[in-house]
């Protein structure tokens, strides 16, 4: 099974490593070949049960998912594009409507102590808007913010983010 990390990289930029890693954002990279799926689960008393069924079905079908987010009436996640059909098949009838959007790329912004950077989300949001890249999903951790955007706009997004964070293209 191909992993998300092994997908072709559209590009990567990074700040040269010094003795201790620089504070702030030091790399932006993209991973192509992804899709975003939204499954309706309703907001009634059976919401949790439907969420359990969705996650269990995907697990039993050996479909890796990420950028998982819970919404009042739905669950959304990302997966590799070539797994979308299998995912739709295994989810059929388990919950509500299932919608998928393909041709997406994951733009990953990496920083040291991301959660100490108060303005990082503003910069990312402005850069994506400047690039015309609509955001389909987002995930954040202590060292990354990952944004799911249309592949057609991923390169422009990287250009804007690179400029905004003062990174230089790697040789």
């Amino acid at each position: 099974m191909r992993s998300q990390q092994k997908q072709p990289q559209l590009g990567a930029v990074a700040r040269p490593l010094t003795f201790e890693r620089g504070r702030g954002v030091y790399a932006v990279e993209t991973t192509a070949g992804l899709a975003h799926v939204v499954v309706q689960v309703g907001d009634d008393g059976r919401r949790v049960e439907r969420l359990q069924r969705v996650l269990r079905a995907l697990a039993d079908a050996q479909i890796p998912i990420f950028l998982i987010k819970l919404h009042p009436e739905s669950i959304s996640f990302a997966l590799e594009s070539d797994l979308v059909t299998r995912a739709e098949d295994c989810l059929h009838g388990l919950a509500g409507e299932c919608g998928a959007r393909g041709d997406l790329s994951l733009v990953t912004i990496t920083a040291t102590s991301m959660r100490d950077l108060n303005d990082v989300m503003v910069t990312i949001a402005e850069s994506l808007q400047q690039a015309g890249a609509r955001l389909y999903g987002i995930g954040d951790s202590h060292n990354t913010v990952q944004c799911l955007v249309e592949t057609a706009w991923a390169a422009a997004a990287v250009t804007e983010l690179t400029a905004a964070f003062g990174l230089e293209a790697q040789g």
């Binding site: 939204v38 987010k69 819970l70 919404h71 009042p72 009436e73 739905s74 959304s76 959660r115 100490d116 950077l117 108060n118 303005d119 989300m121 503003v122 955001l135 389909y136 999903g137 987002i138 995930g139 954040d140 913010v145």
Partner: peptide
Amino acid sequence: ARADINILLVTFGPT
């Protein structure tokens, strides 16, 4: 950001 407040668990949804 102006108020020096860090945000996390950012989520976009349909509503």
